[in-house]
């Protein structure tokens, strides 16, 4: 890892001020599980001059419920989110998604805000200087996406504007299905917006000096069923090949409300609105679930190596709906 200046920010405002001062040449660090890897692999087009530590900011690590809204401070560690009994009871989808991130050590270090803001995992983008070969791709100011014409088995099956990397955050997928909001603070003040708007074209849709400060999750109806599936080769360490988050509310077997989000298949969390509209008002059974699976991938257009994600996605969407119906959890 090359040299940099380091600052321990005492307040969010101080961190924003530093970011402004460095004018794009500083990075904020929370858990560091992604940023330090990025710095060690030296993949950024411009190595940052300064690192600004957010962990020294007081009062950004909390889990609380206020007026039917779950509020999580952005510095709350993933292991704390995963093990919170409040979240396990009412927002289990989020708990499960957090528990499926990385490894125990990564969850002890990584924060919920950091998970949302991590960089993409595309292996062309991530090719380290230690390998010798660096791909000067679109994300680095180049004019080619090497994945499109290369090995793209882990990339998007729903296209992308230029970069076809997928959204790497498990938490983002779960929060999308939970209809959560993100609160940020930047030089222009605070704003609150849906988590789905945090991403645009395989990148963070944030101002350069804007910092995520809080996650807000509306309380799901008590009868809502929440399921998280993360399909991957191994049961630890891997990122999702495909992930599905569902929240389903039934009334006498009929779908009253449903939200489904897909991960690992698109540059941003993919909400399945059409599938949701189809399911609402319908009986949930193996037929409707199967149809939902088919609809989920109807508009997929795979790249050269990743068409196998289509049958996986189709099957998982079907399964998730049936599991939610039957109150089953993944074994």
């Amino acid at each position: 890892m090359k040299r940099f200046e380091h600052f321990n920010a005492k307040t969010i405002d101080e961190a924003i001020l530093l970011l402004e001062k460095y004018d794009g040449e500083a990075k904020v660090i929370a858990g560091g599980t992604d940023l330090i890897r990025v710095l060690k692999d030296d993949i950024l087009p411009k190595y940052p001059k300064a690192i600004i530590n957010l962990k020294t900011i007081a009062n950004l690590e909390y889990i609380k419920e206020e007026n039917g809204v779950l509020k999580i401070g952005s510095l709350t560690r993933l292991s704390d989110v995963a093990s919170s009994s409040l979240i396990k009871t009412k927002y289990n989808l989020l708990s499960e998604a957090c528990r499926s991130v990385g490894t125990p050590q990564i969850r002890n270090m990584g924060t919920i805000g950091g998970n949302l803001c991590q960089d993409v995992q595309c292996w062309y983008y991530r090719a380290s200087k230690s390998l010798g070969k660096v791909f000067h791709c679109l994300r680095k100011g180049g004019n080619v996406c090497y994945a499109v014409s290369g090995d793209n088995r882990f990339h998007s099956i729903f296209g992308g504007k230029g970069c076809v990397a997928v959204c790497p955050s498990d938490v983002a997928i779960a929060l999308t299905a939970l209809d959560a909001l993100v609160k940020t603070k930047g030089p222009l003040g605070e704003r609150v917006f849906p988590v789905s708007e945090l991403y645009k074209d395989a990148a963070l849709n944030l101002g350069r000096s804007e910092i995520v400060t809080e996650i807000q999750v509306p309380e799901p109806p008590p009868e809502a069923r929440q399921i998280w599936i993360k399909f991957r080769l191994r049961n630890s360490l891997d990122f999702a090949i495909v992930s599905v988050a569902v929240m389903l509310t039934l009334e006498e077997g009929v779908c009253k409300d449903v939200r489904i989000a897909l991960g690992g298949v698109a540059p941003t969390p993919k909400r399945l609105k059409e599938v949701e509209d189809f399911l609402k008002g319908n009986y949930i059974n193996s037929e409707t679930a199967e149809k939902a699976g088919k609809m989920a991938v109807a508009k997929a257009f795979p790249l050269s190596h990743n068409a196998y994600k289509i049958p996986i996605t189709e099957s998982l969407v079907k399964r998730v709906i049936l599991m939610a119906k039957d109150h089953r959890t993944l074994t």
């Binding site: 380091h6 660090i29 560091g32 599980t33 330090i36 050590q105 990564i106 002890n108 270090m109």
Partner: peptide, 8 residues
Amino acid sequence: PILSCLTL
């Protein structure tokens, strides 16, 4: 448990 190689 944390990873000391990723901790400043």
